[in-house]
Structures are given as structure tokens and as C-alpha cells.
Design a protein around this nucleic acid. Sequence first.
RNA 1: CGAGAAGUAGCGCAGUUGGUAGCGCACUACGUUCGGGACGUAGGGGUCGCGUGUUCGAGUCACGUCUUCUCGACCA
Length: 492
Amino acid sequence: MAKEVTNREDNYSQWYNNLVVKADLAEQSAVRGCMVIKPYGYAIWEKMHDQLDRMFKETGHVNAYFPLFIPKSFLSKEAEHVEGFAKECAVVTHHRLMTNPNGPGVVVDPSARLEEELVVRPTSETIIWNTYKNWITSYRDLPILCNQWANVVRWEMRTRLFLRTAEFLWQEGHTAHATREEAMEEASRMINVYAKFAREYMSLPVVVGTKSETERFAGALDTLCIEAMMQDGKALQAGTSHFLGQNFAKAFDVKFSSKEGTLDYVWATSWGVSTRLMGALIMAHSDNNGLVLPPKLAPIHVVMVPIFKTAEENAAIIEKMEALKKELEAKGLTVKIDNRDTVRSGFKFAEWELKGVPVRIAIGPRDMQNGTVEIARRDTLTKESMNIDVCVEHIVALMDEIQQNIYAKALDYRARKTVKVDTWEEFKQKIEEGGFLLCHWDGTAETEEKIKEETKATIRCIPMDSFVCEEEGRCVYSGKPSKRRVIFARAY
RNA sequence: CGAGAAGUAGCGCAGUUGGUAGCGCACUACGUUCGGGACGUAGGGGUCGCGUGUUCGAGUCACGUCUUCUCGACCA
């Protein structure tokens, strides 16, 4: 199986699609816009899932599950919310099929029409707030800190594996609070959880910021986000956390008796990350040889490839490998011995590189004589020979080193592609090169819209941690006064 | 839904003025190989998206139809 990845520099888009398929992560399904996540891809998602879930629990959250179907009337209770999602909803109208009276196959039974159509959730705010209404009567019931792992459906016109699919896996946190401050704190806490996850586990530098009004989640008062930069200079929204104010509480009439005896509406947040993170991970680190996985999310940390001519040689090498594997596993690493005799070692090297395994160990007859192993790093594509007795410690240390090196590389790329821009001429020129443009903006939706029309660039966020530039200046487009720079970029 | 392009083997494609259905990769068998995606020989695999028409004869021409992709609009 020759699985050559196309060149990243030639056509980034094609390179990405090709990589996702060739590295056995996912493929297009027979259902339009939907994706099959293959076992290897799912193993990576599982790692992300488990770590995120741990972090949610650490911040006091619990998991629950709410229905897939949302009565149409629920969705329309919050005006902005329904407007934001109406155009991409899958709707269930019937509950039965019948044999076709006019030919082969089955048809929808017209007599089985639902009295009220059900929307397949594009997000669960409405069904959840309809439920919370029954859970909340007193301040003693608050806060509610629930998360759900689920699939959602958004009938997008154009789809791309992991980045935008008609159905995707995600988690959505939905919390209810007694005060505005507490809810705002929660929204900010969770965006920071996401940022920490991206940086420490995905080795992905992200900017934490707030969305402009036009980019805000439908029904939110404030949307916090983490924005990442891909290797083609385009921005990718990797996660969001919304301060929903009392919008949903009012729409679903969720009130509670406060300590002071007043009857108040509940304050809400919602936050989510999806399988899009997989897309971010792939796009941010991979090279022309394939995936580059950060050790903390790699399903396999170390792969061992024997190099042999005869069966006896192989048996001796495998024995050695089994012993080494045990030692590495004792250090918490996942190890695979690729003992296939159907493909050659060179093929295995290429294949495991394609799959992004951080460290590869090769042992051949020469090593058997010298008591050495060959250790290859995926991130730098370098190899070194080392005495087998000291290699375990080295490999354990390598995991951290690789994790950090990948982050440093991505951070360095982002730094190189982030520029301050002060004139409209320069803006139009720089945006073609990709990257983040730090610009003054007059704060109006009109200007934002005009810039988008003319350059396809949008405000990715008003940064809160990295690139905070609170300084006086003039809007890059209108020339009106501005107090801080924001990040403009073309985005996925 | 608007504009463009494409549907031929599992994948990627070629197929000239209409005249025997092809190539590369992958697959199967055997042999030689084996420290970076091996090589040789021999094989298997097709209703050329679907339908109608023109023709002695259609992958090729005409009309219809379906699907997919790219660019818009929409979006995590």
C-alpha cells in the first residue's frame, strides 16, 4: 500500500484531505457531508475526550445526557438562537415507513406525520433549559454544572473532514447560576480550561479572546473563544464559551427564589469543543511525511520495527523488544511492536511516520551485536543510535521534549505570521500572505462587514491574553479612533 | 440556491476524426530480495453514473436526468 501524502506547500487543502484519509483517521461516508471516524482517528479523539473530561470534573462539573430530538417549538423560544440555527437544521417529520404501493422499496407513510416536527439538535441549549426549568426553584438548587458528550447535526452546505461535517461529536457544558458574576466567571474559567488543554495537550498555541458582536453565538451576550493558526496562516476557532446572560432563562421561564426572597431569572453559560479539534491538531503540526502527534495525545507513543533476514534473527529481536516494551510500559508509555512479516521495514518506517507516532525504535542484527537500538524522533525526523540499557530513560525524557518542541514550533510559526498593520493598503496586501493581522478597529459592525466583503478577513477575536494591545490608534479601515487592536484573519 | 468543472477497475487518471476497454498504484501467486515506501514473471478485476435518441457501430455525438467536486451565500 503506497500511501504518499501530497505536498503541503502545493495545495494545503488537498494535503489535508489526503493526510486525513491516508493516515487512517477518517473518511467521507456514503451519507452526504458525514464522516466515518476510523479506529486510529477515534483513538486520538478518545485521548482528547478523556483528558477534557478529567479537566471538567476537576472544575466541578458532572456529565448528563439530553435527547437528540428537540421539538420545533422549543428551538423557536429564543429568537436570536433560532435565527442563528434555522438554516441548517435537519427535521424529523414522520415516524413510519411503509412498503411502496407503486413499486419496489419503502416510502414514508403519509399517515405517520408527526403533530409537531422534531429538530435533530444542532446544539442543546433549548432542550436543556426546558429541562432545567424543572430542576430549579431555589438558590439552593444552584449552580448546576452539567456537561454532555454528544453528537449534533448542522446541515452545512460545504463540508470538510473534521473541520466541518454535517454530524459531529462534541461536548457541550450548560451551567446555571444565581448571579451574573458567577456565570461570567464560569464562562471565563472554561475558556481557560480549553486554552490549557490546547496548549499543554495538543501543543497548540491559542489566543484567548472575545468575539465581536457579529461573530457571537446566537443567543449569547458574550462569546469567549480560543483561536489557533494553521500552517497556511488561516485561523481556526478551536473552542468557545458563552455567557448567555438571562436570555434562555427568560425564554424558558427559569426563575429561582433567592436568599433575599426575591424571584430572579437564572444566569447561564454554555461551552463546547468538537471533533474539529482533530482538524486543528492535524493542520497545526503535520508535515509532508504525515501526522505529527504530541505524545500526550498519541495513541501509540513508541513503535518498534525489527529489521531481519531470517526467522531466527527475527525471533531474537522480538524477544529483546518484548523486554524493552515491558520496561517502557512500566513508565506509562504505550508501545507497539510491528511484527508484520508481510511488509518490509522501510515500508513500516514510512507508515508509522504517516501516523505520527512520536518515537520509533529499530533493532537489527547490527544492534543485536552492539547492544544498541536506533531511536528516531517524528517531530525532527532525526535518528540516533544508543545503548539499549540506557534508552528507557532517554525515551521517557523524549516524550516531554517532543511535546514541547512541537509547541515551540507552532508558536514560532504564529509569531512569524502575526503582524501589526496600520494602513488599509498594507492590510489588503498582508492578508494575502495569511496570518494574524493586529489592527485598530472602530468597533462598528459596518466596518467589520466592509472588511469582510473586501478581503474575506474577519475579526477572529479581541484578544485577552496573548497579543493584548491596548493602545490608542485609528481604525485601519475608517480611520476613526480606537483603544485597542483586534485580530483580523481569514478563517476556516 | 447562483456560477464553473467532473463522473471510465478499489484509488488516481488516459482514451485522438465514432471502429477489440487502457495506464499507474493497489490486489493474487511464485521467485529473488530485506538497516528508509524492493524487483521480476504471471494473473484477477469494468453494464464507461443512469435513461432516451442518432448510427451498421457510442466511453466518444445530441437531449434529458442523477451524483460529486470547486467558487459564492451559511458555519464549530
